[in-house]
């Protein structure tokens, strides 16, 4: 029983949320600060002056990389969280190893795993895109970079929660 409960909560919500928060902290803020400082030092304008469109150089690789990295991180994080859940269960509760993994196998089907990986793609893309947008909208010197990062983090958190709320029922309806 404990295995089912741990697997269901970890796979569908807890691990995707933690991976999303990690991506916001490590990817989204870096992108917003990087592009924000490029924007206020007019490096983005310099690209346009030499006839290069800044979007394919600055935005597209970051967003595509996050779209690829999101599900990979999610898969590794799911393995780590399940192993930690197993360790926690056998160390602090009456559950045995076989009880735990029986519960996990009872709950685990293809769909919840696929569900989590889709969340990885969606969160990754949204976080990188909002980070790029916030960075490119930065104005007003070094203070503006701080403001851009703040706006970016708020936007990323809101978009992650909104997307989480939207894709859960959508995927359940589609039942891919």
């Amino acid at each position: 029983m404990i295995g089912s409960i741990v697997a269901s909560s970890l796979v569908t919500e807890v691990t995707p949320l933690f991976v999303g928060l990690s991506m916001i902290g490590m990817i989204g803020t870096r992108i917003a600060a990087e592009l924000g400082s490029m924007q206020i030092t007019e490096q983005v304008d310099a690209l346009e002056v030499i006839g290069r469109d800044p979007i394919p150089y600055l935005v597209v690789p970051r967003v595509l990389a996050a779209l690829v990295i999101g599900p990979l991180l999610m898969a590794l994080a799911l393995v780590a969280s399940m192993l930690a859940g197993w360790l926690g269960a056998i160390a602090t509760t009456h559950a045995t190893t076989s009880d735990f993994w029986f519960g996990v196998r009872y709950y685990m089907r293809d769909f919840p795993m696929f569900f989590a990986l889709i969340k990885g793609v969606v969160f990754g893309g949204a976080i990188a895109f909002v980070g790029c947008y916030a960075g490119l909208e930065a104005t007003g010197g070094s203070v503006g970079v701080g403001r851009a990062v703040k706006r970016g983090v708020v936007g990323m958190l809101c978009s992650m929660v909104v997307l989480d709320t939207l894709i859960a029922p959508l995927l359940k309806i589609i039942r891919i």
Binding site: I2, L10, V14, T15, S22, S81, W86, T92, T93, H94
Partner: peptide
């Protein structure tokens, strides 16, 4: 973070 989350969920869920 996900390991700590897994540890926390299993500790909170099972009968101690």
């Amino acid at each position: 973070l996900s390991s700590l989350g897994g540890l926390l969920i299993s500790q909170q869920t099972g009968c101690p």
